[in-house]
Design a protein around this nucleic acid. Structure first.
Lengths: 105, 105
DNA sequence: ACAAAATATTAACATACTTTTATATGAATG
DNA sequence: CATTCATATAAAAGTATGTTAATATTTTGT
């Protein structure tokens, strides 16, 4: 990203812009938003539970979960057979709430 | 997107998920967030003003503006020589504020 | 140890996004 | 009316993303 953005009269600093864009890109997909919505409600769920709710291919769900985990959006904790996913950062929920309440959508 | 999502116990309905994802994808880029930040502060700006602030290629800026306009994020009004862009929906600003204030970023 | 269940990994493909360079359009001005 | 300024469009190239299908890994129960 452009260096010059560093000295701009933006309310959001360049580094934050990068991070925000990174997060938005990481969650900007219907399946991912659905996952976040479910995890926000239930605190945590394992993959099979999510798969049942979402009714999508196992590999596809796994892919989305891992991508979000890799990008720091989700946490994964293995408990025996299952892997429980949860939302990494509570402030993430505010973005989701914001979307959920956004009348424009 | 998966039909079955329609009957899910999600707080956010399937259609809203699609729209939200669409918007998030449309704004999930550092340059676009910077544009939104500037437009939010100034209400409206024409392309040259934005270009000066952002210091990026004219064609690149034009591309981002038009994409956001096509996706309903921005409005464009031609006044003689200039084209003024503004944020289409005020509730969009809440998402941006949310991002700006998000400590996690 | 074996089979089944839960999840990840890989490869392949299609599609979409970002950027650059070059060119076109249309409005304003001397 | 020719030029300059503001902006868009097009083409090309590189990169990233989403999806499917097939296979592998790990854990559990028998």
């Amino acid at each position: 990203m452009n260096e010059a953005l560093q000295q701009l009269p933006l309310r959001i600093e360049a580094q934050k812009l990068e991070k925000a864009a990174f997060i938005l890109k990481a969650i900007g997909h219907p399946i991912r938003l659905a996952i976040l919505d479910l995890l926000d409600q239930t605190n945590q769920m394992h993959v099979s539970e999510l798969q049942e709710k979402l009714d999508i291919e196992q590999a596809l769900l796994s892919h989305h979960l891992i991508k979000m985990k890799d990008k720091g959006v989700l946490l994964a904790v293995k408990k025996g057979k299952y892997i429980y996913y949860s939302i990494a950062d509570p402030s993430m929920i505010r973005i989701i709430d914001c979307i959920a309440q956004c009348k424009a959508l």
